[in-house]
Every structure is written in C-alpha cells, then in structure tokens.
Design a protein around this nucleic acid. Structure first.
Ligand SMILES: [Zn+2]
Ligand SMILES: [Zn+2]
Ligand SMILES: [Zn+2]
Ligand SMILES: [Zn+2]
Lengths: 168, 168
DNA sequence: GCATAAGGTGTTATAATATAACAATAATTG
DNA sequence: CAATTATTGTTATATTATAACACCTTATGC
C-alpha cells in the first residue's frame, strides 16, 4: 500500500512535501516536453501549501494575492487542467476541490481519505483495492477505465479529539 | 454481491424497476412517518425513468413539463434533499447528477459503475469492497463514516460496440 | 370544528463552480 | 526574422446549488 497518510495526519517537515512535489513536477514536464510556466507552478505550489484540497476560487484569490493583480477564473482552470492532465494533481468531485498528488505517474487508486473535521485528504494507492474493483467490474462485464474513490470520516487526530472521554 | 447491473445493462421489464422503487418508497415513508408528496414522488419517478443519472436542471425541465407549469430550482432541490435523506436516491458527485437507489435501507457501498458512452449507472453493494475499504481506513487509523465510489468505463453493451472487429 | 404549530411550497434573488469565445502575447521552429 | 504554435488576458455566460421570506397545507390538541 502506497499512501501519504502518515505525513498528512501528523506534524512533519512539510517543506519536503512541497519541494518533492515541485521537483517531481519539473522532471515530469521536462520528460513530457511541456512547460511548467509561472502560473502553473504557482498553482501547484498553492495546492501543496497544505494537505487540504482547495477550490478553484480559493486558488483564484490566493493566486491574485501572490502576483498582486486580479486573476480571472480561466487562468486558474487552465492551470488546473494542465496539472490534471499530467497527473500532478487530482480533483475531488464531492468537494469541487483540487489537491496535489503525492505519487504521480504511479498506477494508483485515486482513493482519498477525507477528514470531515479538519478537511485534510490523504491519498492511498492499494493494489488489493484496485484488484477487487477490477474484479467487481469483470463480474458485470464492465470495462473499467478510471475511478474516483472517496472515503469520508475522521483523521486520526480528529478522531482522538472527538473520542476524548471528557471529565464532566 | 448485490447489484442491479444485469438489469441496467440489458433489456428488461423496466416498469417493474419503477413500480418496485415506488412501493419501496411508499413503505419507507410510511415507516418513517414522512410524506411522499406529489412533487417528491414525481421527482422519484423521473429519476427512475431510466438507469441514467439526471441533473437537477434536467429534472426541473421534465418536472415543469409534467405538471405543465414552471418550476423553480428550490422545488427540485428540496425533493432531492428529501429523497437523499431517506436513502431513496444517490447523488453522483462527479456527474452532478442523481439516480434512484435500487436497494435502499440496505447497508451498501455507494459504488457505481458508470458508462462513459451511454451514461447508465449500475449500483453495486459488495461486502468485500466495504471490508477492504474499512481495512484500508483502519491501517491509517482513519475513522470511516461514509464513502463515494465511482467506476467509469464501458458497460457490456457499449464495450461490445467499441470492441467490434470491423471488416475494413 | 377551530386554533395552533409544524411541515411543505412558491418566489425572488444570488452564491459557487465552470466554460466558451476571441483577442493579444510569448515561445519555439525553421 | 517570419511563421507557427502554445500560452495568457479578457469578457461574457453557462451550470449547479442555496438563502431568505412569504404563503399555504396538513396534522394535532383542545
Ligand atoms: Zn506535507
Ligand atoms: Zn482531521
Ligand atoms: Zn430498469
Ligand atoms: Zn454503455
């Protein structure tokens, strides 16, 4: 099982997350011979600011603040489209939000564990999950092409807080 | 494995799907002591017209046509909210669309197989899937509360058409 | 039955998310 | 440097969803 859950759910050196993501992005763009322009890189950086998915209009605001001039929606959506196409980010449909992918160009599950409390989203790539879903598809003669899997609940930290006994 | 895939992907007596859905709905409403008003029932019927998810504004149009007077979005969304709360329908986030649930008040997976070609969506409830996802969550100490699982691809019919050899 | 409360609907306005279309600019290629 | 291609800016608009408040209907207690 490949996952960034440990990182997401614990204090960690997040600068490493960011720089790793950026160097992966640069490598991938070089490999694919496409351009990681300033805007695209900035949007990617913004998405990697935290492990919480961001909406397009949150990105718009933050982008505008960063470059100190107004930004129109298409600017954001184009950058998102580019990053999605390269697999550098994912869209989380039920949140209408976007998040950096911790392990792009791996075959992976598009499986997210999303905390209803703090909003963090950890990604999991699990062969057993993929295999089982493939199997479910096969049984119905369904030709599986892609998937979007979202688990909602409480991350370890928020679980602890919620479950806390209370001395009353 | 509980699924309506066979029905969805083959010609079948769809009237039975509809009437079964409606009687389930009536029973559930009676049991819960809530009212299946005309609008709510109509929306449910419209969602059961086919095995393809419908968007709220498609429903709006069809509803307006049926009752022969204009309908405002809140009317539709209120009916949808009611039906969702009872578990009689599901929302498919990546399509912004809604579909009738073939086996409500069962513990189930919220797992859909959605055809990219013809738009049909079959639902699957599979204990093995649920168990595995629970297990994945446990491993990360994530408290699983709900899930949304969407598989995209080609239904059996559309697979055959696509894969057809071609005599050229 | 009638008053009351609760639940449901109508209506208007608006929020939030996403895309279309076309002009302008920048980067790449030969 | 001209020609082509990729990228960005700009304006307008489509699509999905909700807020707020007035009005009506149904159930409930007396
Ligand atoms: Zn991090
Ligand atoms: Zn949390
Ligand atoms: Zn049917
Ligand atoms: Zn199909």
């Amino acid at each position: 099982m490949l996952t960034n859950a440990k990182l997401v759910h614990q204090p960690h050196d997040h600068e490493r997350c960011i720089s790793a993501a950026l160097s992966r992005a640069k490598a991938l763009c070089a490999e694919q011979n496409v351009r990681l322009t300033t805007t695209r890189e900035l949007v990617l950086r913004l998405l990697w600011q935290s492990h919480q998915p961001l909406g397009a209009y949150q990105l718009q605001d933050q982008l505008a603040e960063h470059i100190n001039k107004p930004v129109a929606p298409p600017t954001v959506y184009r950058a998102l489209e580019f990053l999605l196409r390269l697999g550098l980010i994912h869209r989380i449909p039920s949140l209408n939000a976007y998040i950096g992918c911790p392990f792009p160009n791996n075959e992976h599950s598009n499986l997210f564990m999303i905390c209803n409390q703090c909003g963090t989203a950890a990604e999991v790539a699990d062969k057993a999950v993929n295999k089982l879903l493939q199997c479910v598809s096969d049984r119905s003669h369904f030709t599986l092409q892609s998937q979007s899997l979202e688990l909602f609940g409480l991350c370890p930290q928020c679980s602890n807080i919620t479950e806390a006994p209370g001395y009353d």
